[in-house]
């Protein structure tokens, strides 16, 4: 059996053991905290979080996300960032000199962009920007989607997991905080990367995942090269 982190359900009282409640907990009495989510408990020395198994992405300022342009207004692109609300990209926030009414020439509906959340207000209206290093329109490639709470597992500690998938499969990968992942490369390599991401998605709550993915990718690669001989 794999080792599984402690699973909690909504309303479960959490023993903080002196740490501070951070994400996914609410005050349910004097000095008591309960879980908001169905997820796993993550305890460090300072903080306690509940990481949900599933759930919508909620935009936060500074997050880099992948969005799909769904509508074009006179001076804005309206994008779906797989959050409960659409997000807006204004022409002043793109690196090109654009004229109002001529937005289609740069980004059309259906295109994907890698953008940063510029600002968000209290009723969850958000604006994106493309003015930063690495932000761009994503040309070609394939998009896969995972629940946004699992993004940290895809990235791994300091990017170990995603870098390993990139190196082992020989693909280019961009991970958005909102759970959309862009993969580009030869089709069979992309398929391999997708299957690895699928495993991370399904086993995100287990321990020792990076090592298992490394093993999986090695064995799959062996199979491919073995077949071609």
């Amino acid at each position: 059996m794999m080792k599984v982190r402690e699973i909690v359900l909504p309303g479960d009282q959490i023993d903080l053991q002196g740490a501070k409640a951070r994400y996914g907990l609410y005050k349910c009495g004097e000095g008591q905290f309960c879980s908001e989510y169905f997820g796993v408990l993550q305890k460090s020395e300072q903080f306690v979080d509940v990481v949900p198994f599933n759930g919508a992405y909620m935009p936060r300022r500074g997050d880099k996300v992948i969005g799909k342009v769904i509508e074009i207004g006179p001076s804005m692109w309206i994008t779906d960032i797989s959050a409960p609300y659409t997000s807006l990209l204004h022409i002043n926030d793109v690196p090109w000199r654009t004229n109002a009414g001529d937005l289609k020439r740069y980004i059309n509906t259906g295109d994907y962009i890698y953008a940063k959340v510029l600002s968000i207000n209290e009723i969850n209206e958000s604006w994106l920007t493309l003015k930063d290093v690495g932000l761009r329109k994503l040309e070609g490639g394939t998009i896969v989607s995972i629940p946004s709470p699992k993004v940290p597992r895809i990235i791994g500690k300091g990017g170990t997991m995603v870098n390993m998938i990139k190196d082992e499969t020989g693909t280019r990968i961009v991970v958005g905080q909102n759970g959309l992942i862009w993969i580009d490369g030869p089709p069979e390599n992309v398929m391999l990367a997708i299957s690895a991401i699928e495993i991370v998605k399904n086993e995100a709550h287990t321990i020792g995942l990076t090592d298992r993915i490394a093993e999986y990718l090695k064995s799959k690669k062996g199979e491919i090269s073995g077949n071609s001989k």
Binding site: L9, P10, G11, G24, Y26, C28, C34, E36, Y37, F38, G39, P52, F53, N54, G55, A56, P147, P149
Partner: peptide, 11 residues
């Protein structure tokens, strides 16, 4: 609702 990852006070 719980399995959809929606925050709840309790089931």
């Amino acid at each position: 609702v719980a399995s959809a990852g929606i925050p709840m006070r309790d089931l």
